[in-house]
Amino acid sequence: MKPPIQVGITGGIGSGKSLVCKIFQCLGVPVYDADRHAKELMTTDGILVSEIKKEFGVLSYNEDGSLNRSYLAGTVFNDSARLKTLNSLVHPRVGLNYQQWVAHQVNHPYVLKEAALLFESGSHQLLDKVIVVHAPESLRVQRVLKRDHHRTADQILAIIKNQMPEEVKLKRADFMIQNDETILLIPQVIALHQHFISMHS
């Protein structure tokens, strides 16, 4: 049996990649949410937990074993070198977890790996194709303000500034889904779905 084609899907904050993934899931496509798994593994993967404690101190975790998010965020948010260090601990463990997950998806023609930092982490190199979900910056900021009431426009722009520039992502992508509310999303997803199925057959 042929292994499934591995397709990455990424996009900046507010681009709508989670919505696009939900549409793929409705079509029966397995989706691995790398960011959700990263959060999970930071408390359940013993190797990763001990590496984080060693690098960032025992205060990185609360007494009940949960992640001390505010402490960790305060440590890395404005320090790109520390953020890089944290990502360098987390990404390999997520990569391993993802490979184990793929091994269980053999009866599917293709799978999706959803990750905000797909290019930045280098994990795109292990995938067959990459989709970038694209929307203009002003629209993305509006969407996040509506969704995350605790964030300000300046905070969102700071996050965008920390992510890879949109034009670089688009150059590296194999496919682009436009989510700027001028083109319907579902037909774009269905066209790619059919393309990946025909690639696998």
Rank of each mutant, 00 (worst) to 15 (best):
S70D: 13
L67K: 01
G65E: 11
L112C: 06
N68M: 11
E63R: 13
L67S: 05
K54L: 14
L48P: 01
S121M: 04
D35R: 00
Q99C: 08
L86P: 00
A103V: 08
E120Y: 07
L127E: 06
H108A: 08
V90L: 06
R69N: 06
G65M: 10
L127K: 00
S60H: 09
A34E: 01
R69E: 06
V76K: 04
R93M: 06
L117T: 05
T85S: 13
W101N: 04
L118Y: 02
N107P: 00
H104S: 13
L117P: 01
D35H: 02
R82A: 15
L48Y: 04
L72V: 08
H104T: 15
S121I: 02
Q105R: 05
D35Q: 01
L117D: 01
H108W: 07
Q99K: 14
R93F: 04
L86W: 05
L89C: 09
V106G: 09
L126G: 00
E63A: 15
A115Q: 04
A34H: 00
E114S: 07
V111F: 03
N107W: 03
E63M: 10
E63H: 14
L117E: 01
S123H: 06
T44I: 07
N87Y: 09
D79Q: 12
A103G: 11
V49M: 08
F56L: 03
A34D: 03
E51Q: 15
W101R: 02
A34T: 00
L118W: 01
N78L: 09
P109Y: 08
